[in-house]
Nucleic acid binder design. Structure first.
Lengths: 346, 346
DNA sequence: TTGTACGCGTTATCAG
DNA sequence: CTGATAACGCGTACAA
């Protein structure tokens, strides 16, 4: 078992100084061709590679991006990561991941851990817990220390940084418009509590779309799910809530759900209640997921272009990292959504 | 914007030496209570945290685990990562991710990048490309350099290291036995080419289960999909292959598929051919995925316990990292599979 | 009780 | 053309 070889070892073996070796390997003009060849040959033989940690310490940059996301077992976030990783690698960066698991504490701890020199900047999406508590001190502190942050999807206006978001409002308007065009008269929305920014915006889009068409919103058609029911473990409770919605509002002929799970669960309940899709009720979800594509019937969705979001976020961050100048110049990139029509709508 | 504070700065401000500060912060008995308090108060005020990079360089360990996986937009791998991250964080480690994207080259490049000091050890699953080429030199080299590797799921006997696998053979036998018990007489298998180790083992399990029940395997019931059709982009081709299978073998009354996509696609085709599930044909998949749970009908599967695999792999790696002694003592942990019965079987 | 010196691996600067 | 030295930030053995 040979340990990784260092400049020092090469220097000793070849009986030259460390700095000579260093220069020879970087093809410096200062070094004679003779020595260069000797050193380079030796280095290649022993497969010399400079130690990243030492370089990081010296250069005060790690060439590593920290990602903080609430959850990895989630198609949307996984796709964003793929996008980030793609761009990061292309631009010579690595990617290190911290999961907040939707918890404020884990988000803070993970960020502190990574901020102490391990990374050059963050790409992150805020946990629900943090959004509910509205405590953003860890973001401010990080930014104050000169470490840039790019937020995506779940962002917050209070924090001044680059952002990549989806046009949630326009996207959900597109969806609801589609339902209206398709003849739906009583459109329900299944959404989250308002502190989840995207949920709020999507609800707003729903309301605006109705308004645009002169339809009076009915509060009993708006179902706001508490976050606790989001997990797969509480599927039954989610189902119960949705079933109640349908039972109390038999006239529902269109459903807009702000995520995949809600949409699929709603379709499941509708089937259980012997409703035909899309004849009796039409469904549209808001997501990028696989479930939608493979559901029966397949689900019409508003696609968020998750991978593009990741790519853009990584570009923004690396641009900031590599341009000292435009420090205080933050931008918000809006990714266009796209309505993907499948079998759950007419 | 205040940059992160260092020992040196604290020392200068308080007009003591760097080592005094260092010792004071670690509560060394050498330092007077007076100085300790002064230093600690100052450090707290400026929120001092030791620089990870400097510590890594000094200690020659990064407290970071490198993960190399073929694909992140994949429920199984995402769950494994969650398991790794869980254990890693609990034991004070971070997690850095490299995606091979199923390519040999990217696998090698990513590993080299991380191996140069960025991490202490790898947890990885081999790319299909690498398995096909059977070129494992990068694994050997990494191990030779004293950097431990733990492989999971897609492993290879040639490489001597810790491994975490699923009892693929037993798992698929369970599945096929179930189909046989349920009265299936003509059971097809949809699997991968043999170089994917798990595909091979699962095929073998299928054959053994048949044999155990005195059923003669029929080669036209064994469909081996080329890897190119795995991606979502080639769904139509996959569908065509499966449709042909069904059309040429109308007597098929049971299907065992080695992954989720194959199983769902097969169910879709069966429906298209007006077969009733599970009355006419029963289906079992091999996977942990969400698709199975939410499919219509929901899919009976052999669960791999992905998260447990990740946890075990991380434990193995960290154990090795923290115990210098048991160097050459490699073990293979086998995770038991579990048959989860849903609507696609009787 | 405090401070000095060293080393982790690298590169840049300056001296020889 | 080559080598010594300093610095990145930290911890620790040893000296004062």
């Amino acid at each position: 078992m040979k340990r990784k070889i260092t400049l020092k070892q090469i220097a000793r073996e070849l009986d030259v100084s460390i700095s000579t070796v260093s220069k020879a390997l970087r093809n410096s003009a200062e070094i004679s061709d003779d020595t260069k060849q000797k050193v380079q040959a030796f280095a290649k033989l022993y497969n010399y590679r400079p130690n990243n940690i030492a370089l990081s310490l010296k250069n005060r940059k790690t060439k590593t991006i920290g990602i903080i996301i609430p959850e990895i077992v989630h198609y949307f976030f996984a796709k964003v990561i793929r996008g980030i990783e793609l761009v990061a690698n292309r631009r010579g960066y690595n990617v290190i991941i911290g999961l907040s698991n939707e918890s404020f504490n884990k988000e803070v701890i993970n960020m502190e851990m990574l901020a102490n020199g391990s990374i050059d900047g963050f790409v992150l999406s805020i946990s629900k817990d943090t959004l509910a508590q509205q405590d953003y001190h860890h973001f401010y502190e990080t930014i104050n220390q000169g470490m840039p942050i790019v937020m995506f999807d779940r962002v917050v206006n209070e924090v001044n940084c680059d952002k990549v978001i989806v046009d949630d409002l326009k996207g959900s308007k597109k969806a609801v418009n589609k339902l209206i065009e398709n003849g739906c008269k009583n459109i329900a929305i299944i959404t989250t509590k308002d502190y989840v920014s995207v949920g709020k915006l999507r609800t707003q889009g729903y309301l605006e779309a109705l308004e645009d068409h002169g339809i009076e919103p009915q509060s009993d058609l708006i179902l706001k799910i508490v976050e606790e029911l989001d997990s797969e473990d509480h599927l039954e409770d989610l189902e119960a809530e949705i079933e109640q919605l349908f039972k109390e509002n038999k006239k529902i002929d269109g459903v807009f759900a702000v995520n995949e799970l809600y949409a699929l669960t709603a379709m499941k309940i509708a089937r259980k209640l012997k409703k035909k899709i899309p004849e009796d009720i039409q469904f549209i979800g808001f997501t990028d997921g696989v479930l939608s594509k493979h559901a029966t019937p397949s689900l019409t969705t508003v696609s968020q272009h998750a991978q593009t979001m990741g790519e853009q976020a990584a570009e923004l961050l690396i641009d900031k990292l590599e341009n000292e100048d435009d420090e205080e110049n933050y931008q918000t990139v809006v990714i266009e959504t796209e309505l993907i029509e499948r079998e759950s709508t007419k």
